[in-house]
Design a protein around this nucleic acid. Structure first.
Lengths: 340, 340
DNA sequence: GCAGAATTGGAAATCGTTTTCCTGGAGGTT
DNA sequence: AACCTCCAGGAAAACGATTTCCAATTCTGC
């Protein structure tokens, strides 16, 4: 490996001068020496050793990103937004995927802490488990004390800068919109019982229904992914099989689950939206071409990821919380309910 | 920040001993000292500084991954596979997204080189531009000389370990399968003219048709993404509008483009598969619930990403090339052609 | 008991940079 | 001409670990 010392020797200057020329410094270097150093560096093919730079400077140019699953388009979009910001600032991004294991999440924060990354971005919803949350919080506190920025996308549970999607409000808006279409009886594919994002969406939805004086929705729990949606929709169909009046509209707490639900209904010969309307949440770009097109709540995911990283990188005294509201988008998967 | 020296002092031992206790060493440390050091480290909340470790050890535990676009499920799946391997080996992953800009790709390799990452994984197809390819290759050679492993997923153009999807063979198999369904006249939504992956798929497809004695397909170029598929399909529909016998089957060179094509046909009232059959390539998991379900060529993307990283991490004398073959999956988007 | 081997602990060199001083010379002001 | 300021350049001290020696101890086998 070519080191800075090699370059300096080859150029006939001191280490200090070579460093000043090659790796941005406030100090000036005379034109002739500067040229010599640059030539030597080019000839030798010098590459700075960032580990050494990070050590000497006391700060690297890496940021950390922790997501649950890169294959889930929700997280991919968030990551994309964050990476664009990182790129714009000349930072590299280290990514960790937890596959929804809270222990892994804590472990990643510890690792990123050891890496002395400039900022850590936590994406995705926390499990509603006080003990785990506390441990994560402690780990983050330790990290922040050492000067790193932390932000998260999701719930404001960690005392950090947070970009909070308007889950409850969006779901409530959606409920009102669906009620406006004439629906009276709803089911909710509610995701895992302990997942805060899912809880918020369910609560917002159910709350709006209550305000409208409509009956509480039928809740079916299941995993937060496509297969969870499929399973929950199947269970739903089984449960209402004998009823004379079942729900006319099903709300899946995210788009990916809604896709699973659509598949389940299709497999059982239930027509959407004729037999039942289906709505999701997130407005995942990759899924906009579904048939029938999914009614949902649009969240500006890329912008949210970008904004969160900005928060993490630009420190403030107080923990800031930014609420991002979703926008109801009605498409073909929901239709006017038949008059009662 | 708590350093190892703080821990050593607090425990009343030397730096060397503390290092041996805390960060895996071959040397033994007596039980009593070991306990003292561990206690001190825990009390002080010591976190090793990886930059310093990397410097002292001469190698970090980071690998680099360069993809075009994380939002594209193709790359997300590859990245996921690679990350699982990395996780299993206790390595962190630095991700760079090029957004299909070859200059950025080269820049990322340079940056990863400076980071002295253990291995670099390049995913995604190279542009067929000799000059850019040469520059990338030089950059990679420089990196490999310094001891890093390189692998790529895509074409074997860089003289490195490579996982090569059977693009031409898969497309040829698909062509034969479609011909077996009775199709005689084909169109290909061929992607950008300079993209090697797209070229290979087109060539394989066209080659098989020629072998079967069928007419050469109608080629329509466009971007390699959903909107490119939409635009190309629209152009295709316009072109054949006046013909008395147009192609009965359209092959989009990837699934994402096929989704765009399906949308375009839907918007123009063209029924798939009744009016025209559509097939894609990749078998993206997120898109398996489309209606009509997409006929395609399945590529084990996650496994490919994982394998590529394994190649990069386990050095060999020679550059190894592993071919991965795709499997034709016929679904509802293609149907038997009406007898002529 | 005793030589030699094995083991354990510590001092100090090392990794590749950045950065703080320090020095000598150039330029400007009375 | 004397004095002061400014500035380019270099020597050397961090930065926070690992690792190589070396010395001191404890085991072995006779």
């Amino acid at each position: 490996m070519i080191t800075l010392e090699d370059v300096a020797r080859h150029a006939g200057v001191s280490l200090a001068t070579a460093s000043r020329v090659l790796n941005g410094s406030t100090r000036q270097v005379g034109a002739s020496l500067r040229a010599k150093v640059e030539l030597a560096a080019a000839q030798l093919g010098y590459r700075p050793n960032v580990a050494a730079q990070a050590l000497a400077r006391g700060a690297g140019n890496v940021i950390g990103l922790v997501v649950h699953d890169l294959v889930d388009p929700y997280f991919a979009a968030l990551a994309d937004g964050a990476m664009r910001v990182a790129e714009g600032r000349g930072l590299m991004v280290m990514v960790g995927t937890t596959h929804r294991d809270p222990e892994r999440e804590i472990a990643y924060v510890a690792t990123l802490n050891a890496q002395r990354v400039r900022a850590v971005l936590l994406a995705g919803s926390r499990i509603a488990d006080a003990h785990l949350t506390r441990r994560l919080r402690e780990e983050l506190d330790g990290y922040r004390e050492s000067g790193g920025g932390v932000a998260c996308v999701g719930q404001d549970l960690l005392g950090t800068d947070t970009v909070v999607p308007g889950n409850a409000e969006g779901a409530a808006d959606l409920a009102r919109a669906l009620a406006g279409l004439g629906h009276r009886r709803f089911a909710v594919l509610a995701g895992p019982a302990g997942l805060v994002t899912a809880q918020d969406r369910v609560a917002g939805f159910a709350g709006a229904l209550a305000e409208l004086g409509l009956p509480a929705p039928l809740l079916v729990h299941g995993a937060f992914d496509r297969d969870g949606g499929y399973a929950a929709a199947t269970e739903f169909a089984d449960r209402i099989a004998g009823w004379d009046e079942g729900p006319s509209c099903v709300f899946a707490v995210n788009d990916v689950m809604a896709v699973g639900a659509l598949a389940a209904f299709r497999d059982r010969g239930i027509l959407v939206p004729q037999d039942v309307s289906v709505a999701g949440f997130d407005d995942i770009a990759t899924l906009r071409d579904l048939v029938p097109a999914l009614s949902t709540v649009r969240l500006p995911l890329t912008a949210m990821g970008a904004r969160a990283l900005e928060l993490a990188l630009d420190p403030a005294g107080e923990a800031r919380v930014e609420r991002i509201s979703g926008e109801v988008v009605l498409r073909e998967s929901t239709r006017k309910a038949a008059p009662a």
